[in-house]
Design a protein around this nucleic acid. Structure first.
Lengths: 231, 231
DNA sequence: TCGCGTCAACTTGCATACTAGTATGCCATC
DNA sequence: GATGGCATACTAGTATGCAAGTTGACGCGA
């Protein structure tokens, strides 16, 4: 995967056709609109989006690098099954890195940083209704990104975004239960509290508890959707 | 041409033309044969390797994703300067993940694992002479990979291989001093000893000390070759 | 009915032609 | 001599045609 911590996407401003196809396909795979195992072809996708095969090809290659597609030469390109091993590895890497960064955040946080986190929490609480799921998701990510920034390691979150990809595919398989949003925001609150209190140990423990919640949900979803997975 | 420290693409079995160009360019950038800031063009590279622009283009895109090239649309493609921030982030990520995996390795190691590590150390000692630098480098990597495997997280090393890329560029800038090889092997020995003793704390500490040695060398090289870098 | 060989219809990999945007250097003009 | 405008020679982005390979269906024969 193929992503270096810093110089990845931000400085990349390549063709608009490529980005259109790439974004559309990525969303389609992530949301489950195209299901694991399903075959797609450069020609068909090109025709559908009204572009030639070349930008489609590049989009395919990038998505294959991210683990979303599997390109078999002379045969076809298929949506990759979600690999349980990859999900487990993502969890391990995420927990390891985020527990360390949140410690640093707790050690380094200044007043402005705490205020910024508080603002994010307020915004998060405002979009807890089920019909604003995508906004909720975006603010979830933003909170974790902000913690990495405060820790002085924004690139770590950039890396995690790539690493998390397989994990996010699982998350999209199922809408969450009733109290889910409240639980997430509450756990974020605990983390922010510990960061504001400059308590690295507490912050790490709160982050670990939070991630365990997320991972447990992922495992549950994986069990009930085993046909999408590959051992 | 020197060795590429990392075997590149994990699960990719695409055309031989693409791989030839990709491997050659990667090695050329890593070894400093093509220097940061230097411009290369799809057309010229295609002509030089006797292929068309298409496989060159894919190789460029992949190398750009890895942080080796910078593609500026309608202008040109250039060897990316080594970004000090990226090097620092690589170090942080590597230390965080490897200290955790070596703990796990120490907890999980079985007799066969320890024997395997011992074999690697013996091989390593056998190639300490300066003229076998590339073999030494390869065994260094193999030892770290083996520790990740013993920890039950081989994928973590796969990730680190990608993350380390910018760090390896720095390493290639300079041959190491006289006692370097002995020092590295000695530190590896300490790590393996602690793993063999099922001492997670000691193993983590030994790994941390080892990485600090490596990072110090990187910093030293970075200081004395600042013209290759970008702040 | 089963097995095997043939072939047609796909697929992606590669080569090449064309488009459009950018940097540069020359030349006319002031 | 300095400067503005333009021609030109690059660049990467895109489109498309061809080649090589695989798959699977179809039909023939046992």
């Amino acid at each position: 995967m193929t992503d270096t911590p810093t110089s990845s996407a931000p400085t990349d401003i390549r063709g608009p056709r490529l980005h259109g196809v790439y974004d559309a396909l990525r969303a389609a795979v992530l949301s489950g609109e195209i299901r694991p195992g399903e075959g797609i072809s450069e020609t068909r996708v090109a025709a559908r989006y009204g572009v030639s095969r070349t930008p489609v090809r590049e989009a395919f290659r990038r998505l294959a690098d991210e683990g979303f597609l599997r390109i078999v030469p002379q045969v076809g390109t298929f949506v990759a099954p979600i690999q349980l091993a990859a999900v487990s590895d993502s969890q391990f890497i995420r927990e390891t890195l985020e527990c360390r960064t949140v410690r640093l955040a707790a050690e380094r946080a200044e007043a402005g940083d705490v205020a910024s986190l508080a603002r994010l929490l307020d915004s998060h609480r405002a979009v807890m209704s089920p019909d604003r799921h995508s906004e909720f998701f975006a603010l979830d990510e933003a909170t974790h990104a902000e913690l990495a920034r405060i820790a002085g390691r924004p690139a770590v979150w950039d890396l995690l975004v790539a690493v998390k990809a397989q994990l996010d595919r699982v998350r999209f398989l199922s809408l969450h239960s009733e109290g889910w949003a409240a639980k997430i925001v509450g756990e974020h609150q605990s983390i922010v509290d510990r960061v504001a209190a400059r308590d690295p140990d507490g912050a790490e423990e709160a982050m670990r508890a939070h991630l365990r919640t997320v991972f447990a949900a992922v495992d549950e979803i994986a069990r009930t959707n085993s046909h999408f997975f590959e051992t």
